[in-house]
Design a binder for these strands. Structure first.
Lengths: 144, 144
DNA sequence: AAATTGTTGATTAACTCACTCATGTTTGCG
DNA sequence: CGCAAACATGAGTGAGTTAATCAACAATTT
């Protein structure tokens, strides 16, 4: 029941980019040094976030990465789903990537006790992460 | 961010044992058939639960496993920690198995934004799973 | 042109997951 | 007793994932 390093690094990288938002672009090298992330691994992460439409990048000597959406419009849940896949603790309760469990002995899914608990765990996690934005994150707390 | 099959199978096995609680013992074979779990793998799980003090077993022709605590005194959180390790999504916010994160750039842990969010995620998960007992589980819902 | 950066894809070593196998030990029953 | 049924334990295995690493290339600035 863990998030991957990928997610963790991704969030920390976005933290730096949120701080720089509106003023400068950041190069992968700088982000890597400030957050102690291996540069080459960081690159994969930044590219994934770019493909997902969160970042833009500029090549060349004065290049770098920057956010293309406002920090208050990006939730941590969204970021983690990009880098780590669905939040749900088991496939059969995921709302964004449902997968039926092959070996469940319950014909009616709604009656499966495992699903009932895991569903509420999923909701609790999603409630927090989908309502926590990069702006909250950089501020160090959630203010509603 | 998933629970392992081990936890899932473990919970399903305990569901059967909860139903049988007070009346009979169950053999691994029966549990395996009813819940569609590979027998040999199930055995590892049952032994882990036995070592943790949740089950007792009896050998021989009329043997089997049974719960040695009341279903209402066993929480799902406890079971999952036995089979899957800590609930916390990253090591540095675990209360039962804290592990300092080596590469965190924040000297003061309390100021790390990652820790703040992950801490609240951990609490939300633990809140649900530590207050949900096998009795609730077998009943199919939580009644406070 | 040279240096600095981003882009892409392939490859990797280590590890975990979900089993499976082999082998043993204990127990109950005829 | 003898033997089958059941529990006990440890080692092994194939597939997949994680966390990087490497190599080669393309674009941009000085």
């Amino acid at each position: 029941m863990k998030f991957s390093k990928k997610s963790e690094y991704g969030l920390r990288a976005l933290l730096e980019l949120t701080r720089a938002y509106g003023s400068t672009t950041l190069q992968r090298h700088d982000i890597a040094v400030r957050q102690h992330i291996p540069v080459e691994f960081l690159e994969q992460i930044l590219l994934a976030l770019k493909r997902a439409g969160l970042l833009s990048s500029k090549r060349g000597a004065k290049g770098g990465y920057c956010l293309i959406k406002q920090p208050k419009d990006i939730s941590l849940g969204h970021v983690i789903r990009i880098l780590d896949g669905p939040l749900a603790p088991i496939g059969c309760v995921s709302k964004t990537a449902y997968q039926k469990c092959s070996d469940c002995p319950y014909a009616n899914r709604a009656h499966c006790p495992v699903q009932q608990v895991m569903g509420s765990v999923r909701d609790a996690i999603a409630d927090i992460l989908d309502n926590y934005t990069l702006a909250d994150f950089a501020a160090g707390s959630k203010h509603t």
